[in-house]
């Protein structure tokens, strides 16, 4: 059971308080009607599914009920960082620094 730091509660809590919410930084297009089927399918279904550093969302469903972002290594399952929704994707250097 993972130990997850909720950036809103600022506490490490066990995984069963949280619900995984898929890849992060996939922004819903502002005007979907202008997109062709390929681009729309990309938004709906295509995922990085990264082996390694993965950007993902979690939902503190049995806590503060906030969605937030996380960077996690999918090979070791270790969290590198979590951050609030709306913040930009951390740069690679930032992640490398934390991993150190």
């Amino acid at each position: 059971m993972l130990l997850i730091k909720c950036p809103y509660c600022e506490e490490e809590r066990p995984e069963i308080e949280f619900s995984y919410a898929g890849e992060a930084h996939i922004v819903r297009p502002t005007d979907p009607s202008k997109m062709d089927d390929t681009a729309w399918a990309e938004y709906l279904f295509i995922r990085d599914n990264t082996r390694g550093v993965h950007y993902e969302r979690w939902y503190h469903i049995h806590g503060c009920a906030r969605f937030f972002n996380a960077v996690r290594d999918t090979i070791s399952d270790k969290f590198i960082m979590t951050y609030k929704m709306g913040l930009p994707r951390p740069a690679d250097v930032e992640i490398a620094k934390v991993k150190e």
Partner: peptide, 8 residues
């Protein structure tokens, strides 16, 4: 609903 409200 929460997902769209909070993230989109």
């Amino acid at each position: 609903m929460e997902d769209y409200l909070q993230t989109e």
